[in-house]
Simulated scan of single mutants.
Amino acid sequence: MDDFYKNNPQWLQQNIIDDTFLWEKSFTTTFDEFLNYVTFHDSFWIGSFINQDMEYVCIIRLDAFWNQKYSQSEKYDNEWHFCLVKIKNIISFRIKKLDNDQTNTIGNCTTEIIDSTSITQFDDVYGGHIEFTHKPQIKVLLITEQGEYLNPNPIICNEK
Rank of each mutant, 00 (worst) to 15 (best):
15 N>S: 15
26 S>V: 05
96 K>G: 10
114 I>N: 11
159 E>K: 15
136 P>H: 03
44 F>K: 02
69 K>H: 05
66 W>M: 03
3 D>V: 08
62 L>Y: 00
155 I>F: 05
10 Q>M: 09
89 N>R: 07
33 E>W: 05
5 Y>K: 08
149 Y>R: 07
145 E>P: 00
29 T>C: 10
51 N>M: 02
61 R>V: 00
59 I>G: 04
5 Y>S: 11
75 K>R: 04
30 T>N: 09
105 T>L: 07
113 I>H: 06
15 N>E: 14
14 Q>M: 08
49 F>H: 14
35 L>H: 06
125 V>A: 01
146 Q>A: 15
32 D>E: 14
42 D>T: 04
24 E>Q: 11
105 T>W: 11
51 N>W: 09
72 Q>P: 00
156 I>K: 13
104 N>D: 10
57 V>L: 08
13 Q>L: 09
123 D>V: 00
154 P>A: 13
46 I>W: 06
85 V>Y: 08
138 I>K: 03
40 F>V: 03
86 K>W: 06
107 G>S: 05
154 P>E: 09
114 I>R: 09
48 S>R: 13
65 F>I: 01
152 P>G: 14
113 I>S: 09
130 I>T: 08
53 D>R: 12
105 T>R: 11
150 L>H: 01
57 V>Y: 10
124 D>M: 01
134 H>R: 04
64 A>C: 01
113 I>A: 07
8 N>L: 04
103 T>V: 12
52 Q>W: 06
105 T>H: 04
107 G>Y: 02
2 D>M: 07
55 E>A: 15
102 Q>V: 05
157 C>L: 11
18 D>H: 10
152 P>A: 15
44 F>E: 07
140 V>D: 10
20 T>E: 11
36 N>D: 14
64 A>Y: 01
22 L>M: 12
69 K>A: 06
51 N>A: 12
11 W>L: 03
130 I>W: 05
118 S>V: 04
37 Y>A: 07
122 F>A: 02
34 F>Q: 07
97 K>S: 15
13 Q>A: 11
102 Q>M: 06
118 S>N: 05
146 Q>P: 00
7 N>A: 04
6 K>C: 13
131 E>Q: 14
92 S>K: 15
60 I>N: 06
118 S>C: 04
151 N>V: 02
67 N>K: 00
89 N>T: 10
53 D>G: 08
129 H>V: 00
27 F>L: 08
37 Y>N: 07
31 F>Y: 13
92 S>I: 08
112 E>I: 03
52 Q>K: 14
57 V>S: 12
144 T>R: 04
138 I>F: 06
128 G>Q: 01
136 P>W: 05
126 Y>K: 00
147 G>D: 02
81 H>V: 00
149 Y>V: 06
99 D>Q: 12
40 F>M: 11
98 L>W: 04
82 F>H: 12
39 T>C: 04
85 V>P: 14
66 W>I: 05
109 C>T: 14
131 E>T: 11
93 F>D: 15
95 I>E: 15
40 F>T: 11
9 P>E: 11
159 E>A: 14
1 M>N: 13
145 E>K: 09
